[in-house]
Design a protein around this nucleic acid. Structure first.
Lengths: 196, 196
DNA sequence: AACGATACGGAACATTGTTCCGCTTTTGCA
DNA sequence: TGCAAAAGCGGAACAATGTTCCGTATCGTT
């Protein structure tokens, strides 16, 4: 569905035809390179893969975060949309857990993406902002619902939870001894209201 | 490369006098720079602060991880030593929680240190290894003790917990909306044995 | 076809880690 | 003390990467 067009994404098809084509080519190339080399792949690699110059890549995507957003926007949106859906299928706490699992899976399967979501990384501020804009409302909704039913403590901030879960996913894809899903599950378990 | 003797830190005073002095100077300078610019500060900054050339810094500390270890070794050791002490003062679960708090405080107050503990960062493998060597046995001890008393689930791996807590601390020092300590507390709370 | 606007490519620049080597200082010994 | 070898030093030079800039090529319109 059409969201309020902004930031980086597909707005009204504007500009020259070749420019539009290059934009697509770049997104495709980036997606491919991200899979093999992670989201930290050198800009030159992406440009080479797309067969364009460096100037072109920077014109279309002023910062790398814009490129990453372009590539993963759909998946982030899908994750956001899944929140309300899950909420409709079971208890709020269960839904929250499942939604977090979805988020963790998304991050863990994208090499380096979690590491890049840190807000102290000025280069990726746009990415951080996009994730938050999209997912924070959903997380808040789930959290509130679970708090209302009394399944979890009511004093948890969605932002903190998202940051925490995001952090837990860092480096998970390259460490067989570490299971980010498990840790995220523990964190969510920690949200439960302390039993009397 | 194979350093003489220990990985990094103070070994038996060996070599020339000026070399030993430079080593200390370098550690002092690094400590100062780390506080103001984080552990990712450019090597050149540290060299400049210490008033030595680049060659000198790389000779004394083949990798940056060695320098970081040299600077924080004492504090890591102190944290390790605190484990058994805490265990003697209260219930294992309480001790575990307090020990984790200690660890979190340590990481959070050192700009960028947590981010550098990731094992997927080849440059800092030595640092990662040092932390693990020193802290993993302590964490295991606390975990086991708390499992024996039945306060927590018995299926938690110390390595995973340390990685998880370490990750939770990433970027915490520059984000006022995020409290790593709180998140670590949640994670520890999640360890509790599920109530029947 | 001509022309102005738009976009392109890639050289050039900036930052930072790391290596290498000629020069200096220290140390051991006669 | 004097001296030569060993040990250490400084920083230029190299490599990898992000980013900017501008002369040139292409597109769309008249």
């Amino acid at each position: 569905m059409g969201d309020s067009g902004e930031s980086a994404g597909r707005a009204a098809p504007s500009g020259r035809k070749d420019a539009r084509r290059n934009r697509e080519t770049l997104l495709d190339a980036a997606a491919t390179v991200f899979v093999t080399s992670g989201v930290d792949a050198p800009v030159r690699d992406i440009a080479a893969k797309a067969g364009v110059g460096l100037g072109t890549i920077y014109r279309h995507f002023p910062t790398r975060a814009d490129l990453v957003i372009g590539v993963y926007r759909h998946q982030v949106d899908a994750c956001a949309d899944a929140g309300p859906a899950l909420l409709a299928t079971g208890s709020p706490y269960t839904a929250l857990g499942q939604w977090i699992d979805l988020f963790v899976d998304f991050l863990v399967t994208k090499h380096g993406l979690a590491a890049v979501m840190r807000p102290d990384n000025a280069d990726f501020e746009a990415l951080h902002t996009y994730f938050l804009d999209r997912l924070l409302p959903v997380c808040t909704e789930l959290l509130d619902a679970a708090a209302v039913t009394g399944e979890i403590r009511p004093d948890i901030d969605a932002y903190e939870l998202m940051r925490g879960v995001g952090n837990l996913c860092i480096g998970a894809e390259s460490d067989t001894r570490y299971d980010a899903r498990r840790m995220a599950g523990l964190l969510v378990a920690g949200l439960r209201r302390p039993h009397a």
